[in-house]
């Protein structure tokens, strides 16, 4: 069984990577039509990226939103994961279920329901409304990552610190926090990546200042702008691969630090 399965696995990986592998081909292709055969090598599309002020504004907007969402979602994630792994309380299943719900809820449902409430309250849309939505969808991922970080923690370490005269808070700060720090960093990076890439919620809640994906969506309608989009996409892919590799490094280090078996994966 091993050989056919290995062949299948390699074909499947090819399927998974097909779109990403094409991206740089067209980003460096000296032709405006996105089809084979390729024409020649050019840096033109990358050069053009530097000259679009609307794109720069969108990137800046997205970075602000992603940084804020990552920070807020990770704070909420720490609180919820700590509560879920360390304490027993009535109604825990229901409470955690509601917090984790955005993981399976279609994003369009989250987007329209928030939109309806915000508009009814007469609030104007902007970066902050996108942040509200993104924190909601990033928190479950943050909790999933931090749960495994907190779960593998040896409770007796904290108890020992308390017995030795530390307060609850100082033992948390001195013992628990450093041990789960890799999980926190990993959660920040994953939340940042999710927010940076999220389209639907941003599309509904962004108001007049588009985020990067909303800007991209607008560009996809114009065939002559596609090569520039491919160039931008290449940069985005490289950036997310770097971020994810760092996140994975910290996740593994965290797993190693708390002596837990490494099963891999963020989910």
């Amino acid at each position: 069984m091993k050989r056919p399965l290995r062949v299948y696995a390699i074909l499947y990986l090819a399927f998974l990577y097909a779109p990403i592998a094409l991206l740089p081909l067209f980003a460096f292709n000296d032709g405006t039509v996105i089809a084979f055969p390729l024409r020649g090598f050019t840096w033109e599309w990358f050069r053009q990226l530097a000259e679009i002020p609307a794109l720069h504004a969108a990137v800046l907007n997205s970075l602000t939103i992603a940084l804020s969402s990552a920070a807020l979602a990770t704070c909420l994630g720490i609180l919820a994961a700590r509560a879920a792994t360390r304490f027993a309380f009535p109604g825990k299943k229901g409470i955690m279920g509601l917090i984790m719900l955005p993981l399976v809820l279609p994003e369009i449902i989250v987007a329209v329901s928030l939109l309806v409430v915000l508009l009814q309250l007469g609030l104007s849309l902007g970066a902050w409304t996108v942040i509200l939505g993104h924190v909601l969808i990033c928190t479950p991922f943050s909790i999933a990552i931090l749960n495994s970080a907190f779960q593998s923690l040896d409770l007796s370490l904290e108890e020992a610190a308390i017995d030795l005269g530390e307060t609850r808070w100082s033992s948390f700060r001195l013992i628990t926090l450093p041990l789960v720090m890799p999980g926190i960093i990993s959660s920040l990076l994953i939340s940042f990546t999710i927010s940076l890439d999220e389209f639907i919620i941003a599309f509904f809640l962004t108001g007049t200042e588009p985020t990067l994906p909303v800007y991209l969506w607008g560009q996809l309608r114009f065939p002559q702008k596609i090569p520039v989009v491919m160039a931008l996409g290449t940069i985005l892919v490289v950036a997310s691969v770097i971020l994810l590799t760092i996140a994975e490094y910290f996740r593994r280090r965290g797993a190693a630090r708390t002596g837990q078996a490494d099963t891999g994966g963020f989910l």
Partner: peptide, 8 residues
Amino acid sequence: PFWTSYLI
């Protein structure tokens, strides 16, 4: 691949 730009 799952974490790279969905739109693209």
